[in-house]
Amino acid sequence: MAKFSIIIPIYNSEQFLKRCLDSVLAQTFEDFQVICIDDGSTDNSFNVLTRYKLKDKRIKVISQENCGQGSARNKGIEYVLNNSMSEYIYFLDSDDYIEQDLLESAWETFSTTDTDLICFNTEVVGDESSRLYRRARKYAQLSLVGLLNFTDNIKDLTNVYVWNKVFKTELIKNYDIRFAEKLCYEDIAFCKMYFLVSDKIYFDMRRFHHYMIREGSLMDLNFKSEIVALDHFRNWYEIFKMAVKNKEVFEAKKTIIEKWFWDYYFMTKSMVKTSGLMELEKLKAEYFKEFDKA
């Protein structure tokens, strides 16, 4: 059983995939497996994956019809839980890359502390003059350092990217934590639910991850769409559905779950206009009714 599983969803990433996989295979800590989920790519990505799979037996390749990044990551989780049950899971995007000592550092931290989660810094790679670059860089950078009790206040301050964190497989399994599917910003539901069941977090200021960002990317286009912006609020509902499955977790964390309801409601409200506002108010009424009954 490998200590780490690295889950990489791939969709038409031929241009960046070699750099991504080379950075993974260069890890100084070698006890890991790589779960690559080809999400219905129409370019040469699958052939690139096949070549790497033949070169290194630690690479597993799974294919599915195009269902989105959330679905692909969930398929990777299911593979880990059903086949290997590694101790830790790291999620990497196929156009990003990592430093060679990421896993070695994570192993040392997990081995010497009782943390439930590791969060490290990232380098944003792209046009430094662009609006998207500035926004991503501001949000991704850490302001806390070291091992901390994961209080509700710190849960609020911690960003919801998955690619700058390493997770314990046991918590993902025990609380059935998954990504939202067919929604944008699917990291929100996964991270927030994981935060709810975590007691300790370790912040590492080192930059182990390189985040590739481009104007005109899917993230950029999604952020500009008020209809897609509603997915911020829809992700709150995904958090609620996961939390309410475990009565003990829901009752213990009901206050912060309600706070997140209003946080995501008002954030989404600031991003949408007439047609989006009507849909937002409809979702607000539906979601709060269910929350109130739980």
Rank of each mutant, 00 (worst) to 15 (best):
I62Y: 05
A140N: 14
D127Q: 11
K57E: 15
F29M: 05
Y202S: 03
L196C: 06
E238M: 09
D152K: 15
M85G: 00
N164M: 12
K241W: 07
E226I: 09
L148K: 13
Q100G: 08
V249F: 07
W262V: 03
A229H: 02
F110M: 06
F261I: 04
D204M: 09
Y264M: 07
K168I: 01
S63K: 11
S111Q: 07
S217H: 13
I35D: 07
K60L: 14
L283S: 05
Q15H: 14
D220V: 07
G276E: 06
Y52I: 02
M212N: 13
Y175T: 04
D220E: 09
L280N: 07
E258G: 06
E14A: 10
L280Q: 10
T122I: 07
I257C: 12
D199E: 12
H209G: 02
D38Y: 12
T112N: 09
L277K: 12
I118D: 00
N153L: 10
I118Y: 00
N235R: 02
I118T: 01
Y133H: 05
G40P: 09
I154F: 07
E281F: 15
E281K: 14
G276N: 06
N235S: 04
F190D: 02
R135V: 06
E99T: 10
E87H: 06
L157A: 08
F120W: 10
D292P: 11
N66I: 10
D116A: 09
V249P: 01
F266W: 10
R19V: 02
K284H: 11
E128Y: 03
I35V: 15
K241I: 09
S130V: 07
K3G: 00
K75S: 13
A294G: 08
L171E: 09
F203W: 03
W262T: 01
M212Y: 13
Y264K: 01
K245P: 05
T255F: 14
K245A: 04
D187P: 01
K60Y: 14
A106N: 04
A106P: 04
F195C: 01
Q33E: 15
V166K: 06
L103K: 03
Q100H: 14
R58N: 06
I89H: 00
E290K: 15
I257H: 12
S143G: 05
T169A: 01
D204V: 03
K253E: 12
V34N: 02
K75Y: 11
L117F: 03
E99D: 13
V34M: 05
N174V: 09
Y237P: 03
E170A: 02
N82Q: 11
K289F: 14
G126F: 05
H232D: 00
H210Q: 00
R134I: 11
F291Y: 15
E248Y: 10
S13F: 14
R73I: 06
A136G: 12
V244K: 14
